[in-house]
């Protein structure tokens, strides 16, 4: 029992750090693929690492209107995503699942959002308020959708522990596939885009004030503070992609401690996350950002799908 816990803890820390280390790479890959679609050569896929290093060396400017909320937010942001990362299986099913389940993960993300939205308001700039206001609208529908989508998987596998969901699905395989799984996957993918401020919800590469959500909230951050906020957001994208990969398609994840299984697990998760990155890049190249008040249509679509997923599990 204790032995298991130690192994899980070690793996959890290694995996969380691996996710943190790889998250800028994922951003780099998405940007590169988008560049190809646009017929550009694009920056190197390691460019986000350079950006991060640069931001760490830069001077930090804090608004004179800012209160303590603005100052603590970057640390809370990175801490909440890292704690969440400890609870999510990455290349093995070993994680700190006994500390918290999927509800904890989603609510830790809410904690991140809670602080970030307040930080957006804190400096008294109209842009920050705009971003915060829109983020509240999007997240108030996305969050339940995410919960419902993962609950579907939890009900199918009989546990809300993310690691156990992956394990059960990976071992018992395709027998557990139900109609609900398809609906839930679709709902979760739409929410993933919304939650991480990707097209068609938000355009991550724009700084045009009137269209942006995420960028508007972190507009006042600079230097190391900005570096932490960006790292946290990238990490969040990574985390959701990993959840999508490991909860909905966990096949290939390492379920034991063999070396072969580990290597297989690492290869599998990298391929799966790469697929998510490609999917995001394709969507961003092929779609325009939606008008703000068109967003509820798409959000409600994902919510409805998630609701039907849970109900379909119960009925069918």
């Amino acid at each position: 029992m204790v032995h298991d816990m130690i192994i899980s803890s070690v793996f959890a820390v290694v995996q969380a750090l691996a996710m943190l280390a790889l998250s800028p790479l994922m951003i780099g890959v998405i940007r590169k693929i988008k560049a190809w679609f646009q017929g550009r050569k694009g920056a190197s896929i390691v460019q986000p690492y350079y950006d991060m290093a640069k931001l760490f060396r830069k001077e930090t400017v804090v608004s004179d209107q800012a209160s303590w909320v603005f100052r603590v937010t970057p640390y809370v942001a990175i801490a909440s995503v890292m704690v969440a990362a400890l609870l999510v299986p990455f290349f093995t099913i070993y994680s700190l699942g006994f500390v918290g389940d999927l509800i904890v993960v989603i609510y830790l993300m809410t904690m991140f959002k809670f602080f970030m939205v307040l930080a957006g308001l804190d400096t008294g700039s109209a842009f920050g308020g705009m971003g915060s206001s829109r983020e509240l609208m999007v997240s108030s529908i996305v969050e339940p959708t995410m919960l419902l989508a993962i609950f579907t998987m939890a009900l199918i596998t009989g546990t809300t522990n993310l690691s156990s969901i992956s394990e059960t699905l990976a071992i018992s395989g395709i027998d557990l596939v139900r109609p609900a799984l398809f609906l839930a996957t679709a709902a979760f993918f739409i929410s993933l885009l919304a939650e991480n401020a990707r097209v068609p919800f938000d355009n991550p590469s724009t700084h045009l004030e009137l269209t942006m959500i995420h960028e508007a909230m972190v507009l006042e951050y600079s230097g190391r503070n900005l570096a932490l906020m960006e790292a946290a957001s990238w990490m969040k994208l990574m985390l959701y992609s990993v959840i999508l990969s490991n909860v909905f398609f966990p096949w290939g994840i390492a379920t034991d401690l063999t070396v072969l299984g580990m290597i297989g697990g690492i290869a599998a998760i990298l391929v799966k996350v790469l697929f998510v990155a490609i999917a995001i890049a394709i969507i961003e190249s092929g779609m325009a950002k939606m008008r703000l008040f068109r967003l509820p249509n798409l959000l409600t679509l994902s919510f409805t799908l998630a609701l039907l997923a849970v109900t379909s599990y119960y009925i069918l």
């Binding site: 596939v177 139900r178 109609p179 799984l181 798409l298």
Partner: peptide
């Protein structure tokens, strides 16, 4: 069975997408 159920789910999913 899984294939049958999955395809049925896709049919339901697309009809909801049609509404959207």
């Amino acid at each position: 069975t899984d294939a049958i159920n999955g395809l049925a789910a896709i049919i339901l999913l697309t009809s909801i997408v049609l509404v959207a």
